[in-house]
């Protein structure tokens, strides 16, 4: 039941939350057309030590902002184009039809790409994950949840691979909020993802045993309980749940109970949640 949380001390004057020293490199957080989680994503990266600019995709298309100035490209959560023509599909078309060369060039460099929820759906439609052999074809799909409606609830995730994104993470405990997060791919692709350790996170039970496809621990029916995968070269991560929405202890679903337990056990109440480790790993990559 208990999710471990890293206790943190308050610091920096009025600011409640510790902010690590900023790395010199910056992130570009994509916005526009219904993307909606750009601000909390920016906040999470900042607390982890990485500054960012929120950039409307049209400013990239117009050339007002150069993707090349950045080291991390984030497609945050949201409902781009209202999920019309398939979640993430219309935004992916917008990217592919307008700024594809910039994105390819960015991927060729020593840079990272993160897609959360709708961002993962965009990555899947762009073929940035799994990108076997460096080819950007669509090999996976995030199809409508098995229950057929949007599902918003906290889920427990377990890292299924050891990579730059999952370093030091035992578990994540954060919300899903999507209507189309049901991970689908061919059996061939599925075994390749496993063999090449590209499955980054899986849905699991409180005790970290596999969800085995069972609702609600696996909230959408995803094949192999897959919640997030990386690209073959490991530089792109797509993940359905939202660690940026539960940065703090008080954001966690079960914090009131755990606070009571900690109080009685005379354990200090933490401020930050374990989910921040994902963002610290990203910032650390650029240290």
């Amino acid at each position: 039941m208990t999710t471990p949380v890293v206790p943190q001390k308050k610091s920096r004057g009025n600011d409640t939350f510790p902010v690590s020293d900023l790395v010199p490199d910056k992130a570009l957080i994509m916005s526009g057309f219904g993307i909606n989680s750009e601000m909390e994503t920016q906040e999470a990266l900042l607390r982890a030590g990485m500054g960012s600019d929120i950039v409307h995709i049209n400013d990239l298309i117009d050339g007002r902002t150069e993707l090349g100035q950045y080291r991390l490209l984030v497609f945050p959560g949201g409902f781009s184009y209202g999920d019309d023509t398939g979640a993430g599909n219309a935004f992916a078309n917008r990217v592919r039809n307008n700024i594809w060369e910039d994105v390819e060039e960015f991927l060729a460099g020593d840079n990272l790409v993160l897609g959360i929820c709708n961002g993962f759906q965009i990555l899947a439609n762009l073929g940035l994950v799994p990108a076997f052999g460096g080819r950007f074809t669509r090999d996976i799909a995030l199809v409508p949840n098995r229950k057929g409606v949007l599902e918003c609830r906290f889920v427990t995730l377990k890292p299924a691979a050891d990579n730059l994104w999952t370093k030091g993470i035992e578990r994540l405990f954060c919300p899903v909020a999507h209507g189309e997060g049901n991970f689908s791919c061919s059996p061939d692709t599925f075994s390749r993802l496993g063999e090449q350790e590209m499955i980054a996170f899986t849905y699991c039970r409180d005790d970290l045993s596999p969800a085995n496809g069972e609702y609600p621990c696996n909230p959408n029916g995803s094949t192999g309980d897959i919640a997030g995968i990386t690209s073959e070269d490991g530089k792109v991560l797509g993940i359905m749940p939202h660690p940026e929405r539960a940065m703090e202890f008080v954001n966690l679903y079960d914090w009131p109970l755990r606070k009571e337990q900690m109080k009685r056990n005379k354990v200090p109440i933490p401020i930050e949640s374990l989910n921040m480790q994902l963002f610290r790993n990203i910032a650390d990559y650029f240290r």
Partner: peptide
């Protein structure tokens, strides 16, 4: 409650 996203903007407490 579960089909309404109640966690976006990152402010979920109770």
């Amino acid at each position: 409650s579960v089909q309404y996203d109640h966690t976006v903007q990152g402010g979920h407490v109770l």
